[in-house]
Amino acid sequence: MEQNKVIISVDEAKPSILRIAAFTANGIRVPAQRYDLTEYQGETFRLYMEENGDLSTCKHCDHYWLLAEADIPPKQTETIQTGEKDEKGQEKTTTVEVPLDLGGVTFRTYDLPTKEKNND
Rank of each mutant, 00 (worst) to 15 (best):
K59Y: 08
T95V: 15
P31D: 12
K92H: 00
L18S: 03
C58F: 09
D86R: 03
L100Y: 03
E97K: 08
G103M: 05
A22K: 14
D86S: 11
V6I: 15
R29H: 12
P99S: 10
D62E: 15
A22P: 10
L102E: 01
I17Y: 13
D120P: 11
L55C: 08
T77F: 14
G83Y: 03
A21W: 00
K117C: 00
L47H: 11
Y48K: 02
D86C: 12
N119I: 06
H60T: 10
D111W: 01
L100Q: 02
K115V: 12
M49I: 07
K117H: 11
T114M: 10
V6D: 04
K5E: 10
A13M: 04
T106E: 13
I17V: 15
T44I: 12
F45S: 04
K92T: 09
P113G: 08
P74E: 04
T57K: 10
S9H: 07
I72E: 05
I7T: 15
N118F: 05
Y64D: 06
K59P: 05
E12Q: 11
T24M: 07
V98W: 03
K14A: 12
S56P: 02
E87D: 12
T109Q: 06
N119G: 01
K117R: 07
Q3T: 12
N26Y: 02
F45I: 07
D86T: 09
D11P: 03
Q33I: 00
T106Q: 13
E2D: 14
E78V: 01
D111Y: 10
P31Y: 02
V96L: 01
T93F: 07
N26Q: 13
G103Y: 03
T93Q: 05
A70K: 00
T109A: 07
E91C: 03
K88L: 10
N52C: 08
K59C: 05
T24L: 00
A13V: 11
T79F: 06
A70L: 07
E50H: 05
Y35F: 15
C58N: 15
T79C: 07
K92Q: 15
E91N: 14
T94C: 10
H63L: 11
K14E: 12
Y110Q: 07
V6C: 08
Y110K: 09
I8G: 03
A32C: 06
G42Q: 09
H60G: 00
A70I: 02
T79Y: 01
E87K: 13
L102V: 01
T79A: 04
T38W: 03
A70S: 08
R29D: 12
L67S: 09
N4V: 11
L112Y: 07
E97P: 01
V96T: 08
K85L: 15
E116F: 09
S16C: 14
